[in-house]
Computed example of a mutant assay.
Amino acid sequence: MSKSLSHAKILARRSADRGYAEHGGWLKSFHTFSFASYYDHKFTNFGSLRVLNEDRVAAHNGFPTHPHRDAEIFSYILSGELTHRDSMLRKGSEGAQGKDFYRMKRGDVQFTTGGTGIAHSEQNESDKPVHFLQIWALPWKTGLKPQYHTRSFDEGAKRQGFVPILSPLKGGVDATPKEEADALPMIEGTIPIHADFVMGAGLIGQGKRFEWRVGGGEGVVEKRKKRNVYVHVPMTKGGKAKIRLDQREDAVLSEGDGAFIEGVNVGDVLSVESVGDVEAEVIVLDSD
């Protein structure tokens, strides 16, 4: 088949080649990049994308309170429930979705700016396992004020095309305190991130094709040339989902697989086609 992005290099990262760890019978975690006890010098980051873990946490278990700093950290819930509590949220003050929302289900994304230091816990307080992606990005500068956001993203919209989830803070690297407090993203309806980074998610029906416009469209990101796009297929469809990237027969991904896409520019259009037996869930991480 022809390639619409002939200038792009696409390299698959197969699920079986990822790092893997089990902890105490309650956590099963696949690591795309070096993380904790897993280290591979070839996989430390990709642009500002630093961590992509696919985690399953057993019922009534989870990560106890632990600190973070100088990282943009977000959780994308695939199934089950995950309860987030941190040092900025007083127990008992949890409220409606927004800066006080703390219990997440499918469709929710929880985002934390570690900045100068924040402590949080992530617990599965339900009776069923939770399956989620834990993703970290490197911020464009250190010493940021810690904060967090949570938003829900519509499943129906994800079946129509890629839905933008994260986009850069509109104030940019030199954002004023007011711009930080206002927390306006470059793409309306997304969560603002302190990085030249866009995230999207889609649910691609069998035989259908979605298109990802690199950089999230015109005027969204700063770096226009040679961006780094990582595509991941979570393990949500019992192994029956597959996708094909850029119409390339050598760029077919199964569940758990990902792909490094290098050399693409803002405005390039990446074709993502569902070629498996069922709808494919696809995550796109587009960074500098």
Rank of each mutant, 00 (worst) to 15 (best):
G156K: 06
D154R: 09
P139T: 01
L82R: 03
D127G: 04
Q147D: 12
D86I: 10
M104K: 02
L89V: 12
G92F: 02
R103Y: 08
G156D: 14
G156F: 07
D86V: 11
Q134D: 00
G115Y: 02
F101A: 05
M88V: 06
A137W: 02
L138C: 06
T142F: 15
E125Q: 13
G115E: 00
T112R: 12
Y102P: 07
L144K: 09
T112S: 12
I118Q: 03
Q123C: 01
G114E: 07
D86S: 06
E81T: 14
L138N: 11
K158E: 02
S87L: 08
W140C: 07
T116Y: 03
W136L: 07
T112C: 03
D108W: 00
G115H: 04
D154L: 06
V130M: 05
T83W: 14
A137P: 10
H84A: 09
G107N: 01
Q147M: 14
S87T: 12
T83V: 11
P139R: 05
K91W: 11
H84I: 13
R106F: 11
L89W: 00
A96V: 13
L144F: 03
Q123Y: 14
K145A: 09
L133G: 03
A157G: 07
G107H: 01
R106Y: 11
R103D: 14
E155V: 10
L89E: 11
K158H: 03
S126A: 15
I118R: 00
S93K: 10
S121M: 10
K128S: 11
M88K: 06
L144W: 04
G80V: 13
W136A: 01
G114I: 08
K145W: 05
V130N: 00
E122V: 03
L144P: 01
T112H: 10
K91P: 11
R151P: 02
E122C: 00
K99F: 08
W136P: 04
H131D: 15
Q123K: 11
G156H: 09
D127L: 14
S152P: 01
A137K: 12
Y102N: 14
G117P: 05
F111W: 15
G80P: 06
S126W: 01
S121P: 07
A137D: 10
G115P: 02
R106I: 13
D86T: 03
P139Q: 07
D154V: 07
T113H: 02
F153M: 10
E122K: 10
G143H: 07
W136G: 02
S79A: 14
S152A: 11
M104A: 09
S79M: 07
G117E: 03
A157T: 06
G98Y: 04
H131N: 15
M104H: 00
E81Y: 11
G98A: 11
D100M: 13
R151C: 06
A157V: 02
G156E: 13
M104E: 03
P129L: 09
L138K: 12
Q97K: 10
S152H: 15
T83P: 07
Q147A: 14
D127I: 02
M88G: 09
G80I: 10
N124T: 00
R90E: 14
G156S: 08
Q97L: 13
